[in-house]
Amino acid sequence: MNTSNFPCFFSIFFTVFFIARSSRIADVHSSPKHVALFVFGDSFFDSGNNNFLNTTRGYRANFMPYGETFFKYPTGRFSNGRLVPDFIADYANLPLIPSYLDPRTKRYNYGVNFASGGGGVLVETHRGFVIDLGTQLRYFKKVERSIRKKLGRCRARRLLSNSVYLFGIGGNDYIAPFEGSPVLKKYTKTEYVNMVIGNATKMLEEIYKKGGRKFVVAAVAPIGCTPNTRVKTGRQYGRCWDEPSALARLHNQLLPIALQKLANKLKGFKYTVADTYTVLQNRIDNPSKYGNPPNNILHLS
């Protein structure tokens, strides 16, 4: 993933703040406005969790050329530089949000990143190789207990309610049916997409019960046009694979409806949907407009 244009991509997340209005680095014990950023997702957001899994090379980014531009070494990010959560943290004057599985991560004052490259909402998606969303939620609950133990119930509740919960997941669930899974023989496309969204919104509701109130949910990207997907399909060089992207588009149509139902149900639940699909598709279709060379594989369709 080339991140040279990610500041433009990142601009769609400015509605998050939420963070910007209340976050300036301050000691968690002294600032009632202290904010943390908790990140859930897949390879678009994974800051290195997969480095600490007993998984295959295909699910890791701990080798060059990953990380070559900003960090100058592979960090486990599926990128040559920073990812969207890194830009958000920088914008909000937060430190880089650490990976949960990194043994060096001891404090959660400013949040933690649970994302896992290849991860999905459904536990069946790449089972045994990655961290599914349900497991990411269980990790979050462990963090919540740790924060509550350290700060006390009231302070912990205030921190969690002020914080932002960033989600970017679902794409792998829509690739899986075309990698040998028979799931679309059991469900219609709409039923399958509603199952993915239903499981995801249940996770958001669980975080709400722990005090979370502010959620940013990224739409699923045009996954049939990612370099990895194009290469895996063995299709004509550079050609997009529309079937997964069609599921992504259906997901993106139904997601805001589900989130609004959740907002109607849960008092104080706030959310924004980042239109990742349109932002990335524009860059694929009009590469030179965003400073990319016209012969890049990303924009051959």
Rank of each mutant, 00 (worst) to 15 (best):
G168I: 04
I284C: 13
R77F: 02
R107T: 14
R155C: 10
V273K: 02
N54W: 04
F9L: 15
N113R: 07
F178G: 00
N62G: 05
G198A: 10
F18C: 06
F13A: 15
E243H: 05
S4H: 14
G41Q: 05
N54H: 07
T188L: 12
T190R: 14
F70M: 05
V217M: 08
H34T: 11
N93T: 09
K141L: 14
G234F: 00
R213Q: 10
K267W: 04
F140G: 02
F70T: 03
Y100F: 14
D46I: 07
P98Y: 07
D86E: 09
F14L: 10
F78Y: 15
N109E: 15
I197Y: 03
S181K: 04
A89H: 02
G81I: 01
L247I: 03
V164H: 02
L280W: 13
G224S: 05
G171E: 02
S31P: 01
K142F: 12
R145G: 08
V112W: 01
I147V: 15
R82A: 09
V231F: 04
F178R: 03
Y73W: 09
R77T: 09
A219W: 00
Y271F: 15
N5M: 03
V279T: 13
A258C: 09
G238Q: 10
A176G: 01
F9E: 15
L53N: 05
V39P: 01
P85H: 08
N228Q: 12
I19N: 10
T190W: 01
V16A: 02
K185R: 14
T15R: 14
K142D: 11
D285P: 00
R21A: 05
D102Y: 03
L159V: 04
I131R: 03
V39H: 04
G168A: 12
D275Q: 12
L96V: 03
Q281I: 12
